[in-house]
Amino acid sequence: MCVLIDEIKTLIIETLNLEDVTVADIDSDAPLFADGLGLDSIDALELGVALHKRYGLTMSPDLDETRQHFASVRRVADYVAANRSC
């Protein structure tokens, strides 16, 4: 799981052009949006597209469910591990 967590952190940094942020800077359990890493709704969409391309994931149209999966890097990794198709 550690490998997957670091892989997702790298994906976030590269996809969202996070200058001067390293894998070590991202807390696996901190919120990705607003108070945590400070990402916004456009980043959420961008990340959704990136996860689809990389792991073949399709996000649920249920907003509450999607919010749960995007709460932190660890939650994203759990979701990827359980649902990836590639």
């Binding site: 969202l16 456009i42 961008e46 597209v49 391309k53």
Partner: peptide, 11 residues
């Protein structure tokens, strides 16, 4: 090429 565009680029 892939049928999907970047929301960030689009915005």
């Amino acid at each position: 090429e892939v049928g999907q565009v970047s929301p960030q680029e689009f915005s």
